[in-house]
Every structure is written in C-alpha cells, then in structure tokens.
Design a protein around this nucleic acid. Sequence first.
DNA 1: TATTGTTATACTCTATAACTATA
DNA 2: TATAGTTATAGAGTATAACAATA
Lengths: 174, 174
Amino acid sequence: MPDTPPPDPERLDPEQLAAYFALMEVGSLLQHAVDQQLRDEGGLSYTQFQILAVLGQAPEGQLRMTDIADRLVHSRSGLTYQVAQLAKAGLVARAPSADDERSVNVTATPQGKELLGRVMPGHVAVVRRLLVTPLNRSDITTLSDVLGRVRTHMRTTPPRSATPGRKPTTLRND
Amino acid sequence: MPDTPPPDPERLDPEQLAAYFALMEVGSLLQHAVDQQLRDEGGLSYTQFQILAVLGQAPEGQLRMTDIADRLVHSRSGLTYQVAQLAKAGLVARAPSADDERSVNVTATPQGKELLGRVMPGHVAVVRRLLVTPLNRSDITTLSDVLGRVRTHMRTTPPRSATPGRKPTTLRND
DNA sequence: TATTGTTATACTCTATAACTATA
DNA sequence: TATAGTTATAGAGTATAACAATA
C-alpha cells in the first residue's frame, strides 16, 4: 500500500513548504516591526539593539569584538561599523584588552544601559502583541522547543563548504 | 501558594523569550543561507527571487505592481527598483494594463522562468538541509500550524496606528 | 603563520518626498 | 480627490580586500 510517495529531494511537500513560508514571513514581519519600534523609540537598528542586549547579558558586562561578531553579525567589518556607530552615540566604550593586546573589549556605557532599559518595554510590547498574544502557553513551549532544535542543528551544520563532489578548479587544468 | 506570578506586561517569561529569540535567530540564519544560495547560483537577491516566485504562482502569470508590493516589499519605490533590476536582466517584462491605464502588469519572461527553475533545486536543498532535516513530520505540521496562526494574526493586527489614547491633534479644536 | 581588528571602497537596498498620469 | 507608479535623492548597512599589530 504505497500511499506515501518516496521523498523527492528535489521537492518539499506542502506541509514543509507551508512551514518554511510561514517561518520566513513571520520572521520578516516581526523583524520589521521590532526594528521600527527600536528606531522610533531609541534611534537604534535591530543590530545595534542586539549588540547592547548581548553586552547586557555578558557575565563581565563586556565582550571582545570577535565574541560579538560570532553571535550576531556576519562580517567583522560590519561589526566594526556598528560598534563605531554605538560608540559615536556614547552607548558603548571600547578598551584594549589587558591580556591580549590584539583584542578590544566593548562595554555598554551608563547611557547605553539606560537606553536599553528605556527601549525594552516597547520592544517587549511589540513581541507580545504580534507573537505572544495569538498563542497559548503550550504553543509557546512547542515553538521554542522545535525552533530551538532547528537552531542547534543550524549552528552545528557546516555552513556551505564541505560540499562533496565539488572539484575546486580541477577540471582540465585551466 | 502563588506559584504563577501575574503576567507582567512589561516582561516576557523565559519560555516566551526563548520562543522569540529562537524564531528571530532561525529566521535570520535561514534567510541568510537562502539569500547566499540564490546569489551564488542565480545572481538573485531573496526579494528578487520572491518576485519571480510570486509571478510564477499568479493565476494569469502576471500581477500588478501594487499586488506584488502588498505581498512582498514594504515601499512602492523599493518594488519599482527591484522590478527594474529584474527587467534589466531580462527576467520580467512590464506592460501597461488594458483596463486601467495607471496599472503596470508584470510577467516573468521565459528567461525568468528558466532561471527560477534552475535555482529552485538548490533553494529547496538549503531549506531541507537547514530546516526540514532536524524535524520530524509532526514537528513540521505543528510548526506550520502555530506559525500560520501567528501570520494570520499579524496580517490582521493593525500595524502600529490605532494606538488607543492617542489624540490625533484633537486637543482643543485645532 | 594565525588571529584580532580596522580601513577603504564599492555596492545593494530601502525609504521619503515630489511628481505624473489616470480613475 | 484618490490611486498607480516612477524618479530623485539620500542614508544605512554590508561585504571584500588590503592592511597593521599582536600571539
């Protein structure tokens, strides 16, 4: 009784597609909404907000550039730019590391912490209004469980290299 | 024995926060991955890919600028820019509408359809590798169900206006 | 030699405002 | 007047490559 066709690696079945589309759309809309709120109420981009937030959670209240980049931004120069913006606004301070002269320690200034605190309520309100409201407690738990697993998998999976059968300039000799 | 503190609208409990963070991170990583794949294999941004995809799904194979903008991009001028890019690459064609002289009908050219078809397998592969693989069928169903509800709610919820207690220049008589 | 970080540069994308033309 | 769309413009963000300095 072959009622489940063999999984074609070239396609996604309707359920998988629906999950993918819903994820992308919800992520995009939520991102857009919080970005807007952060700009309106704090003059912060979402990336800048994330940097401040990550610094706030850091044990010593400080992180090296590399540490921040690994968690948030995709290129180093991009992080340098964003941290420079934050520093220009007096929201973070940079100091050379004591034990490794190459490193730069970034900390949130009092103004940075103050701004973060001032912006959080509105931020939370947006997340609550858009994401939390339509879900019950069980939905939330499920969502964080399932997406948590996906996140772990994504972090583990090699980005894009290691593609087997990929000869790097090895056809002929050109 | 009050073990459930009253829900503070100023905060999100750990489960809610976890769901929010997981959603944002997974959405961001997945977006980044597919964007990369589309650029590498088709020279398309994710937005451009979406435009082609939406045109492909359209009943007549054509949509007005407004129709596309409503589904995808956030500003009209942004859409004009993106469609212009696609047209410049010969992937879409624009034609004035017959029944409404103001409207512009956009269609995918044969090259556009060809490119879309050529890019889809890799696209699907990324989604499968990052999102589908770590989940079982039940997870997928749940995910699309829960996120589908969130999406519906987001589309319904007024963006940001209609803030109650917001007097639109109605103090005094102005 | 590998790692940390910055700089220079160029490019993509987005949004706002002003504008044209049609309904 | 309202709607559909474009243009001009300006700004934010990102990545790549070259670079300097330290481990």
